[in-house]
Simulated scan of single mutants.
Amino acid sequence: MKKLQKLLLLAIFSIGIFGTAKAQVPTVDATQNGVVAGGKYTYTVPNTAGQSWTWTIIDNTGAILDGTGGEYAMVDVEDYEKEITWNTNGTFYVLVETTIDLTGCTNQYAIQVNVASNDYTVAFNAGTTKVYCADDANIASGLEMTLDITLAGGAPAAAYYDMEVQFQVDGGATQTATIGADHKFNIPGITIADPVAPAMANITVTIVKVTDKNGVEFTPLAADQDLVIAINPIPAKPTISF
């Protein structure tokens, strides 16, 4: 009977050990905030001769992720440098274990990465129409556009700039401009040959896509993607009879 009890206790103890054996959430050495789903970030450790590195991505339950679930995609730049694109929001851990090749001695470092949802919004500033007289010099020099861009309802941090905006003028070829935190860019100049009888009554500028510094792409709602530039003719030059 005693032998049976010992075997039973051993079995229970073994189940307790192996039932809880899994990857653990690592002890965090640093935290990275301000990451948006869809962004690509570079992670680097010191390139010390005679050492090698093992990189592991862990989720908030302590499970090791291999990338096949789509949570992230990792590119091996070097053994000591990785580019990671975070595809989904959540809390993740980047764990690096470094090993001295000669001795096998190890040490590790972990960062917690807080990935937020892509809640960017973009629209043209100050309504959907701008009105110009056909002889306005700004039309020929290139009209300034200003966008309203928010992230999670507030102004994006400086770390997200510069951004690239892709746009079209009257449905033409897609063009690209760079915008800083002021959200301003110029479309190419438009020639009005005859301001008294301009060949066009309006021009439509369309936002195609905006991409932040970290590669996160976002597009406007259909109601916010167009800005109409109205071009009003000027009257014929009056003559004074005398």
Rank of each mutant, 00 (worst) to 15 (best):
T56H: 05
H183P: 06
I58D: 00
A193P: 08
T178F: 02
L221T: 14
S141N: 12
V205A: 00
D194Q: 10
K184G: 02
E81C: 09
W53D: 08
P220Q: 04
G69E: 07
A199Q: 06
T174L: 00
V115P: 11
F167A: 01
I64M: 10
N186R: 11
G153D: 10
Y109D: 07
F242C: 11
G172K: 07
T204N: 03
E164R: 02
Y132L: 08
Y72T: 00
K6T: 07
W86F: 12
P235S: 11
T61D: 10
V228H: 01
V228T: 15
A123T: 12
T146W: 00
K22N: 11
A116L: 04
T20S: 11
D29V: 02
N138K: 07
I17T: 03
A116C: 04
P235Q: 04
T211E: 02
T239D: 01
I207K: 03
K2H: 14
V28M: 08
Q175P: 09
K82T: 13
K2I: 15
D79L: 03
L151P: 14
L143K: 06
L8H: 14
P233I: 08
Q166I: 03
A222V: 15
G142P: 12
T88Q: 11
G67I: 08
M145N: 12
A140S: 15
A155G: 05
A126N: 15
P188D: 05
D182N: 08
N89I: 00
T128C: 01
A49I: 15
T121S: 14
A140M: 04
G34E: 03
N89V: 03
P220Y: 07
P238T: 11
T61H: 09
L143Q: 10
F124I: 04
T239S: 02
N232M: 14
E78T: 12
T68M: 07
T150L: 01
V77E: 02
Y72L: 01
Q166E: 13
Y109P: 04
Q51K: 15
V205S: 00
V94I: 11
G39P: 13
V216D: 01
V115S: 09
A137Q: 07
